[in-house]
Write a protein that binds this DNA or RNA. Structure first.
Lengths: 248, 248
DNA sequence: CGAGTGTTTGACTGTTCTCAAATGTCGTGG
DNA sequence: CCACGACATTTGAGAACAGTCAAACACTCG
């Protein structure tokens, strides 16, 4: 397994997810030096206040970003899977305002900010891709606000955990038909949805009881996609998904 | 009152808020055609599903972005004041996934996407400024998620309504010492914080009772900034404010 | 087999919501 | 100048959703 080659394909795929890149753009990204690292589960990649000099691309596994409040409670801000670049923020904003850790054993590739910024300066389309990436991320954050602010516990869980994850993982080729593997504990889910872990447990039971989903362990299956979307009030537009371009 | 001149100063100030622009960059933006329009309160600038061809700059007044859920409830996603460019999202993401309306009578200047995109293509620093703008916006959205997801009603209100707004308005030269004018109803605040209007009312009373703030009408005064920040668990870093550069 | 971690359950508490009505404020037109 | 309507704020009371605490139960991995 030659990680370097795959990593560059993945890098180009990730940056070009929302914008069509030219051959020149790809060539530029193809020579960005990547440094692959294996992270053990729960290790922190970023801590609030850090000033990183590299951004990372996830090759395998899952990460999440979060903030810890003074009282000790945690709010998860986003989840990231293989193929995502979870920290383009630090490219232009030196000091990070949240932390990031690995949810599983994960393999990531680091690219220096200098190299990425240089690519953006040389190729306007890459700059556009970075801006678009940030806009899509903002769009997802907005939907999380709607979800946490205005939806009751059950639709909230259905929305984030099943609808959003299912589509995102499908786009990343990480879902299998109507099933997906999600390496999240109920406590993680609680911290992402603003609920308590106990309540998350009960809501999951309700989702299973109404036959919307089916879980064993961390494999989850969608049993009725139409009804699930309806229950969640889900409209996929905010994900700004495009058909899978790079793998044709 | 020649709106065109002021509008361009404001445009440059807004785009250059997080990034230092060169003389060339400024010159480029100085010739972007702007079309000033007066909006009456409550009129909608953007509706979910629109595909706008222009972005706007607020010259005076306040706007907010929001989504309406199927049940009829509303979640406000952000507030924007004079000097802000609230819709840079549509520059690169054609279809908007939320609505935007005027909270007051407002004057805005529209600039075509073509002109702005062209500026970004010509001048890498402008492209960087757009990307950075989106990143700061995402950072604020993240803090809103923390706020709504994990803080109790009182700190939540203190955080958004008093700490964040106070600093942002100060940065925009719209606050006067420890006071500010906010054209928001308690219902607006409720829709922004994920609370009910009744509860917002009660929390405001508690904030007044503990002498953290003072309100009459829509003028609000901070009575104890240190204690307010403490009560809110507020840390301004997420706003990524820089000293007011363009007005020196 | 035991340790550690995650899930499930029960009982109780409490914050926040809903509904409904009273009170206050502002602008407009009679 | 007052009356009126529209809109915003305030109050009360009861209900509901979700949180906390604590313990039992599973599962996995050395």
């Amino acid at each position: 397994m030659p990680p370097a080659v795959n990593a560059h394909v993945s890098l180009i795929d990730s940056i070009g997810r929302h914008v069509d890149l030219s051959a020149d753009d790809r060539a530029m990204l193809d020579v960005v030096p990547l440094r692959a690292v294996t992270l053990i589960s729960k290790s922190e990649i970023l801590v609030e206040g850090d000033e990183p000099t590299d951004s990372c691309l996830i090759l395998s596994g899952a990460l999440c970003r979060y903030r810890i409040l003074s009282g000790g409670s945690r709010q998860i801000l986003s989840f990231h899977f293989a193929g995502d670049m979870p920290d383009l923020q630090s490219l232009y904003l030196n000091r990070v305002d949240h932390s990031m850790c690995a949810l599983t054993t994960a393999r990531v590739a680091f690219a220096s900010h200098d190299a990425l910024r240089n690519a953006a300066t040389q190729q306007p389309r890459i700059a556009k891709a970075f801006a678009t990436h940030a806009l899509v991320e903002a769009s997802i954050l907005r939907e999380w606000i709607v979800n946490i602010g205005r939806r009751a516990a059950l639709p909230r869980m259905a929305h984030l955990f099943f609808c959003e994850f299912y589509l995102r993982l499908t786009r990343l080729n990480l879902a299998t038909g109507d099933g997906m593997y999600l390496p999240l504990t109920q406590a993680d889910l609680a911290d992402a949805t603003g609920l308590s872990a106990v309540h998350v447990n009960r809501v999951l039971q309700a989702l299973r009881a109404t036959e919307l989903i089916e879980s064993n362990g961390r494999h989850h299956k969608i049993r009725d996609w139409a009804r699930l979307q309806l229950a969640a009030g889900f409209d996929e537009r905010y994900l700004h998904l495009r058909p899978n371009s790079a793998r044709a």
